[in-house]
Write a protein that binds this DNA or RNA. Structure first.
Lengths: 191, 191
DNA sequence: TCATCTATTTATAAATG
DNA sequence: TCATTTATAAATAGATG
């Protein structure tokens, strides 16, 4: 697609790689936009430049699409809607083990609510890998809870739960280029 | 790019639209794969077909990329690496408010550890939106902490922290190199 | 550095099996 | 309905200012 055919290996020269990245990212986003337009579908692309900077494209926006994707229970592809009742049934089926895990997750959240701030003095930086992994496990439990709940709510609420920071709790719509994230308004074309 | 030039409007015929979607989705994923290969970058694409079915592509996987995107603090784009020290400095700059929030988050995790499972009897389904939002906020704080720690670790560990599920809460290695959400492997090529 | 140019390669719309 | 083919539009690698 250029003067010469190129090998499909990482471009070794940093400068060339950056140029290639910029050109192809532009092309990719354009293609994505065409796909969204021609087929009237939702699409989101997130890409980090070689320098580590995030670029994104989304129709109608990155977060609605990501939210829809993440919220999707793995077991049901009902497409449209699906009552929470079905979900609950599935969850109950998972058995007591999950129930206990959920109880712990809830206890965690509640305990945090009345939290005594000074109970834990060690900094997270001092924690070992094992502890972090365990923290993460509970975190995942929490998130499962949130996701399970989320299917009940309409899209805007779901967005609130999934978006990292909730200032934009509203429903900022409009297909967007560039940063899906709040500060970036339209497009960053340079890295 | 075909026998004829086509208008950039929604293809009205459902059948043609589906064909166009399949072809262009394939092309888009191929381009994304090339971009990832040539430039050694992380990228994720999520697209819902006209029928509402999800398709995804991700390098090294959808969730690691989405996680990185959602977790990104808006204020620092340090790019490469950055010792945890730099991160800590930035966090300290945020002031006492954040310090307190973090302390609460840590307390939460710790409380969960010694958790009394029966403290909370209400089901999550019964919780109100506000409580869920608050739970989510703490969750985000926790995750920020984990991410701050994560920069110290090598990629595989980072992947472990960010990937949504690890059945084996222990230290399941060999991060899933491709899958989107847990059950999905890499890409679904048919709708 | 950076945008623009163009020779080529690549993607794909329509045709075809 | 699909997969394959083919004529053409579109993307882009390298050149150039």
């Amino acid at each position: 697609m250029g003067r010469r055919k190129i090998e499909m290996k990482m471009v070794t020269d940093r400068s060339c790689r950056q140029v290639t990245f910029s050109k192809r990212r532009t092309g990719l986003f354009k293609k994505a936009n065409e796909l969204a337009t021609l087929c009237a579908v939702q699409i989101a692309i997130i890409v980090f430049s070689p320098g580590g900077k995030p670029f994104s494209f989304g129709n109608p926006g990155v977060e609605p699409v990501v939210g829809r994707f993440l919220n999707r229970g793995d077991e049901h592809h009902d497409g449209q809607l699906n009552g929470i009742q079905r979900r609950i049934q599935l969850e109950k089926k998972r058995g007591e083990a999950l129930e206990k895990a959920l109880a712990r997750a809830k206890a965690s959240a509640a305990a945090a609510g009345g939290g005594s701030d000074s109970l834990i003095s060690r900094s997270v930086e001092e924690m070992g890998m094992e502890e972090l992994v365990e923290m993460r496990r509970r975190l995942v439990d929490l998130r499962e809870q949130l996701d399970g709940r989320a299917v009940e709510m309409e899209a805007s609420s779901t967005l609130l739960l999934l978006s990292n920071k909730s200032e934009s709790a509203g429903d900022s719509r409009g297909g967007s280029w560039g940063g899906g994230r709040r500060r970036r308004s339209v497009a960053k074309w340079r890295d």
